[in-house]
């Protein structure tokens, strides 16, 4: 069953998804940006805790935003991450 579209559901060409995909690829070159999809987690893509922190810093830098650490949590799916970033846009 397909997921109903909501304001936090990223479209295939979501610019935030592209920013995350590029950051993941820059930190972990083995990951192709097209493998970074909303239903996956960074851990599933092979990013360890150091990678995940670096990806988050890169994404915040690219978007020019600062998210307080208390908003982050383990096993954040990319869909949830996009929703979090959208709050700060």
């Amino acid at each position: 069953m397909s997921q109903p579209a909501t304001s936090s559901t990223p479209a295939a060409s979501d610019p935030l998804l592209e920013v995350i995909g590029e950051a993941v690829h820059a930190v972990v070159p083995e990951v192709d940006p097209t493998d970074v999809t909303a239903d996956r987690t960074l851990a599933e893509l092979g990013c360890n805790s150091v990678d995940r922190a670096e990806i988050m810093v890169a994404v915040m830098g690219e978007l020019g935003i600062t998210i307080h650490p208390s908003e982050f949590s383990r096993d954040l799916s990319i869909r949830s991450l996009i929703a979090l970033l959208r709050k700060y846009e």
């Binding site: 805790s49 150091v50 995940r52 922190a53 383990r74 954040l76």
Partner: peptide
């Protein structure tokens, strides 16, 4: 661990 790492940074 993710929260702790971000807090450290």
């Amino acid at each position: 661990s993710d929260l702790s790492l971000m807090s450290y940074l």
